[in-house]
Every structure is written in structure tokens, then in C-alpha cells.
Amino acid sequence: MKNSRRVDLAVGAFVAAGLAALFVLAMQVSNITAFQRAEGYTIIGYFQNVGGLRERAPVRLGGVQIGRVSAIDLDQNRFEARVEITIAEGYDDLPSDTAASIRTSGLLGEQYISLDPGGMPDALSQGDEIMLTQSALVLEDIIGQFLYNQGAGGEE
């Protein structure tokens, strides 16, 4: 009888330790509270080229993360990339002429969307479109342009 109680105790401690470890992994390692999907409102931006931008990439304003990219697909009429941006609930008074550009963090880092606030009094809301967008810089284009300029300069 005593022995079986000890077994119960050990199993209970084992299961509790496992669940506690999962809880710590959730809270301390993966920060479960940060930017879950489907909270906040969604705005849309059309980009000529999204480069290496991916879904769930961060959206920052002034370097502070305020949302995530929730979907990227091609608009069949405009032949431009349609990017859905989900902004967290607290940030609901962005000016309606806010501009979006795709940037790279560091030289080799991930790509993210940087928002630059405008000056209009009315705010962006669910489903609005961002009018001013700037595409990702494609390294090959820049190098190509540079070589072309060099070649043109050399002939003079």
C-alpha cells in the first residue's frame, strides 16, 4: 500500500514537471503573448516587388513592432503583390496617408515592412489600402544598373 502511494507520488511529480516545463517553454522561450493572429485590424498594400518578404514578417513603425504580415498573394488585375498587414489593436490611429516600404534588417537579415506615418487627420481602419508603397530593393537590379552606368561611362 505504502509502495503504491510512492509510485503515485512519483508519477504525479513527473507529469507536473512535464506540464510545468511546457508552460515555461510557452512563456519564457516562445513568448506566446506577442502578436497572435486574428487580433487587431487588417490593411492592404500593393507592392510591385516584395522581394524576400514572407508571411508573419514583422511590421514596424519607428523601429517598434506593431503588427505582422498576414498574407501575400498576387493581384491578377494589377499584376502586383497584394500584402495583407495585420496591425495590433492598440495602434488604431495611424494616419490614412501612411507609407509602407519593404526594408531589410541589417545586411543579411530578414525583410520587414516599415511604416512611415503621414499627416492626415483621419485614421486607417479595417480593409483600407495603403496608397504610398515602396518595393523591396533587389540586389541584382542595383548591380545591373551599376554595371550599365560603368559601361556607359567607359565609352566616353
Binding site: 511546457l22 517553454l25 522561450v29 516562445s30 513568448n31
Partner: peptide, 15 residues
């Protein structure tokens, strides 16, 4: 160490 980990590790996708 912790803040970069929390920023990059997602609960649903990784854990």
C-alpha cells in the same frame, strides 16, 4: 539571449 529567443521562437510553429 532571452529577448532574441522570444522574438524568433513561435509557440504554435516551433514548440
Amino acid at each position: 539571449f532571452w529577448s532574441q529567443m522570444q522574438a524568433q521562437v513561435s509557440f504554435a510553429d516551433d514548440v
